[in-house]
């Protein structure tokens, strides 16, 4: 069941069997969070990559002197957290469970080691992560366009 969830996640779909086995070896298993639980917090070391399989995760930030602002919601099939790839390897935003959430947790250090050791796996992983990140960037651009706002 859990293995099926990993194989069917957008981050792993259609991976060759060797790459899939490497990805599975980096997995720490499945975790769940109740609605309202914090999943990761700004400034903490980014040591995990989360493949969300169910539920909604709110990406938030709390500017000084202001209330927490909900920036974007990610859903099942998305990846949460890519700051582990980018120095200084610390979370740039907060992530809170908007509903009950289930995710497959990957050890970020093992992922990086495996990608360095096996470029084929590294490319397969990065290709999929890049697609997910690009989707989020496109969506963010659409949000910025204020599509439903008054016409100029």
């Amino acid at each position: 069941m859990y293995e099926d969830k990993l194989r069917n996640h957008r981050c792993a779909r259609d991976m060759d069997s060797a790459s899939l086995a490497t990805l599975e070896s980096c997995s720490l298993g499945e975790s769940t969070w109740k609605k309202g639980d914090w999943i990761l917090t700004t400034g903490d070391l980014a040591t995990r990559c989360y493949l969300v399989t169910a539920g909604d995760v709110h990406i938030e930030t709390t500017p000084p002197g202001r209330k927490s602002t909900l920036l974007q919601t990610i859903h099942g099939g998305d990846v949460l957290g890519w700051s582990w790839m980018i120095p200084p390897h610390r979370w740039a935003f907060d992530a809170r469970a908007g509903t009950d959430v289930t995710a497959i947790v990957l050890d970020a250090a093992k992922l990086q080691e495996a990608a360095e050791a096996d470029p084929r796996f590294g490319y397969a992983l990065m290709k999929r992560l890049f697609t997910l990140v690009a989707d989020r960037l496109q969506a963010t651009r659409l949000q910025l366009m204020d599509l439903y706002g008054p016409r100029a």
């Binding site: 909900l70 920036l71 974007q72 859903h75 099942g76 099939g77 969506a139 949000q143």
Partner: peptide, 23 residues
């Protein structure tokens, strides 16, 4: 339902509606 920008008391989905289609 999703909104592009959340109000203080909104705890629903935030993001463009296209993001709901894969679900």
């Amino acid at each position: 339902v999703t909104v592009d920008a959340a109000a203080d008391n909104w705890r629903g989905s935030v993001g463009v509606v296209t993001r709901l289609i894969p679900l």
